[in-house]
C-alpha cells in the first residue's frame, strides 16, 4: 500500500516535470519574467506566512483548526481601511514623508488591534466553552464563527469593496532592466520578515513563549508549573490574530480593496501553506507559505495554463500533501498525544 502511494507520487511529479518541460519552458519567457514572478511569489508568500502562522500557533496549542482565522484577518483589513480613511481625513497622507510613514505604520497597528479584538472574542465565545469537547465540535464552531464574521461585515458595510488608498510615496516601484518590483511588494516582504522574526523571538526567548511551548506539549503539567493555561491560550490567539491583522492590511494595500469575503480565499491558502510546512510547526508555516507563494506565482506559466487557474494549483498542492505527506515538509514527529 505504502509503496503504491510512493509510486503514485513519483508518477505525479514526473507528469508535472514533463508538462513544465514540454509547455512552460517551450513558451520561451525571458529570464526577467521569471525573476519578476519569483519576487511576486515571495511577496505573496510573505502575506500567506503571516496568516499561516496564526493557524499553526493555535493548532500547536489546541489541536484545532481555527477556520475563522481568514475572517479575523479580513476584520483587520477593514479596521486598517477605516484607520487609513481617518489619516486621510486629517491630512497626514498629504504631509511630509515622515507623516506618511507614520500613517502607514499606524494603519498596520490598527489592523492588528482590530484582528486581536476579533480573535480573543472568538476564543472566549466560540472556542473556550467547547474545550474538552470532541475535536470535531470546535471545528464546526469555527466554521460558524467564520460565516458569522463574514455576514456581519456584509450586513454592516454592504457588498461594495472598500478601496485602500495608496499614498504617492509607495506608488510605483523599483526597476532593474526588465524586472519591476512594486514598492508595496518590497514593504510587504520586509514587514512580514520583521513580524516573523519578532514572533520567533517571543516564542523562543521570552518567558511567555516558553510557557506557550510548555502548554502546547502538556497542559496539565504546564499548570503544575504555575502556568495559567487559559491565559496562555488567549495570548496565543493574540499573537496569531495580530499577525493576521497585519497581513490583512498588507493584503489591502496589495490588492487595493477589502470586502466582506476577502479573508476566505487567503485564509484557505494560508491553511494550505501551514499544512504544506507541517501544521503546528512555526518554521514550517513560514517555509510552506513562501513555497506556496512561489508555486502560485510561477506555476501557471510553468505549466502553461491561464493565471486564473492559480487557485487550482494551490489547492491541488493541499490535496497532494494530504495524500503523500500529511505531516508536511517539516512535519513534526507526532507525539503519542497527537497521534
Amino acid at each position: 500500500m505504502r509503496w503504491l502511494v510512493r509510486l503514485l507520487g513519483v508518477v505525479v511529479l514526473l507528469l508535472l516535470a514533463w508538462r513544465v518541460a514540454a509547455v512552460g519552458l517551450a513558451e520561451g519567457y525571458p529570464a526577467s519574467f521569471w525573476i519578476s514572478q519569483t519576487l511576486n511569489g515571495l511577496v505573496l508568500g510573505g502575506v500567506y506566512a503571516l496568516i499561516a502562522l496564526g493557524y499553526t500557533l493555535v493548532y500547536g496549542i489546541l489541536l484545532m483548526i481555527n477556520f475563522a482565522h481568514g475572517d479575523v484577518m479580513m476584520i483587520g483589513g477593514f479596521t486598517g481601511f477605516f484607520a487609513l480613511q481617518l489619516w486621510i481625513g486629517v491630512g497626514w497622507l498629504d504631509g511630509s514623508a515622515l507623516w506618511v510613514v507614520l500613517a502607514l505604520v499606524l494603519t498596520v497597528v490598527a489592523g492588528m488591534l482590530g484582528s486581536v479584538l476579533a480573535g480573543i472574542t472568538l476564543e472566549r465565545v466560540a472556542y473556550r466553552p467547547l474545550r474538552g469537547a470532541p475535536r470535531l465540535v470546535p471545528l464546526i464552531s469555527a466554521i460558524g464563527a467564520s460565516l458569522f464574521l463574514q455576514y456581519s461585515v456584509l450586513l454592516i458595510f454592504g457588498v461594495t469593496p472598500r478601496a485602500y488608498t495608496r499614498p504617492a510615496l509607495i506608488e510605483g516601484g523599483f526597476r532593474a532592466g526588465d524586472v519591476f518590483v512594486p514598492y508595496t511588494g518590497i514593504i510587504i516582504f520586509i514587514v512580514s520578515l520583521v513580524l516573523m522574526l519578532a514572533l520567533y523571538l517571543i516564542v523562543q526567548r521570552s518567558k511567555l513563549g516558553r510557557a506557550m511551548r510548555a502548554v502546547a506539549e502538556d497542559k496539565s503539567t504546564a499548570a503544575l508549573m504555575g502556568i495559567n493555561v487559559d491565559q496562555v491560550i488567549v495570548f496565543t490567539f493574540i499573537l496569531g490574530s495580530a499577525l493576521a491583522g497585519a497581513g490583512g492590511v498588507l493584503l489591502g494595500f496589495h490588492n487595493t480593496v477589502v470586502k466582506f469575503n476577502s479573508g476566505f480565499i487567503p485564509g484557505l491558502k494560508a491553511f494550505t501553506a501551514a499544512v504544506l510546512g507541517g501544521i503546528g510547526n512555526i518554521p514550517g508555516a513560514m517555509v510552506g507559505a513562501l513555497l506556496l507563494g512561489l508555486i502560485e506565482a510561477l506555476g501557471p506559466s510553468a505549466l502553461g495554463i491561464p493565471t486564473e487557474y492559480k487557485d487550482i494549483i494551490a489547492f491541488s498542492v493541499l490535496v497532494l500533501i494530504l495524500i503523500f505527506r500529511p505531516s508536511g515538509l517539516l512535519g513534526e514527529v507526532l507525539s503519542e498525544k497527537k497521534a
Binding site: 511551548r213 510548555a214 506539549e217 508549573m225
Partner: peptide, 26 residues
C-alpha cells in the same frame, strides 16, 4: 505546593534548562 508528577512528564521538546526555568515560572 509543587509536584513531580507520575511518569515524570518532562517537556520533551524543551531543553533541560528550559524545563528547569519553567519550574521557576511563578
Amino acid at each position: 505546593i509543587s509536584q513531580s508528577p507520575e511518569g515524570r512528564r518532562i517537556f520533551a521538546r524543551l531543553t533541560v534548562e528550559e524545563n528547569l526555568e519553567l519550574g521557576a515560572f511563578t
